[in-house]
């Protein structure tokens, strides 16, 4: 997709989200430029996952709008948003336990394939061709993330690091424009984390834009072009990593968390 580098791929305009009077997000606005990597940080309970749920259509915002590729997506069902090329991973891993690793990735191809009940029941030639392609693409992506040897295992049998990779692989299979990663490094060791950083760069090389929520500061600062900081549902900073690291407001927010 060709797009002017100045227009945003994702634009959040004044999002508010109340949960029975408690404001989870307050007047949040930001943009994500195409083919960039944006870090999204903040102390626990700052509202990052709520923001993800609003962007991906799982939750409706109390007010405000979300624009993707210049189109308003607030109010659309999550599957419609996924079809448009915005997919996400989950902080609490949400893999399909009743499928193999390979099938989980093939699931990611759902939006890139069409065969319905009729074509599948009758095994029409076009369905068979599509199925073959889906499998090949899925295998390709598994190889990219390094899980090719686990293709026929069940996800439950994998260590947590591999499960996180599999979630990314599944999202990647959808050939998205934008990926929202939710704490991809949680539960990973140092070696796995550095591999994850490489993977994130490689995904960007494919032209995919990334928004990443993460607590591992080293990782965020390494991969991000820009970092957005949220505290108590409000944006307190948005800048390049070097400036964020020295921002007194950000430091105060994280020191506050340590006091708890």
């Amino acid at each position: 997709m060709t797009m002017d580098n100045n227009t945003a791929l994702l634009e959040i305009r004044g999002i508010e989200k109340d949960f029975g009077g408690v404001k989870a997000i307050e007047n949040l606005s930001f943009m994500v430029k195409p083919e960039s990597i944006k870090g999204f940080i903040g102390p626990n309970g700052a509202g990052k996952t709520t923001a993800y749920n609003v962007i991906s259509g799982v939750l409706a915002p109390t007010s405000g709008e979300v624009y993707f590729q210049g189109k308003k997506i607030t109010g659309l069902k999550p599957y419609r948003i996924a079809e448009m090329g915005l997919v996400r991973t989950f902080q609490n891993i949400q893999l399909f336990h009743n499928m193999t690793v390979l099938e989980n990735v093939m699931m990611g191809r759902h939006v890139r394939s069409k065969s319905g009940f009729m074509a599948s029941a009758l095994r029409l030639p076009r369905m068979r061709a599509e199925e073959k392609e889906t499998k090949e693409k899925a295998m390709e992506i598994l190889t990219l993330v390094g899980l090719q040897d686990q293709a026929y295992f069940k996800p439950d049998s994998l260590p947590i690091g591999y499960q996180r990779l599999l979630e990314i692989a599944r999202a990647l299979a959808a050939e998205p424009e934008l990926m929202l990663l939710d704490e991809p490094a949680a539960g990973l060791n140092t070696k796995e984390t550095s591999q994850l950083a490489k993977l994130i760069f490689r995904i960007r090389e494919k032209g995919i834009t990334i928004l990443v929520v993460e607590h591992d500061m080293e990782l965020v600062m390494e991969v991000s072009d820009e970092v957005l900081v949220l505290e108590y549902g409000q944006k307190i900073a948005e800048d390049i990593p070097r400036n964020i690291q020295t921002d007194p407001k950000v430091i105060a927010a994280y020191l506050g968390e340590m006091d708890d």
Partner: peptide, 11 residues
């Protein structure tokens, strides 16, 4: 298996 994940992947 997971309705939310299925929805978010485009089902």
């Amino acid at each position: 298996s997971k309705e939310l994940a299925a929805h978010s992947i485009g089902v």
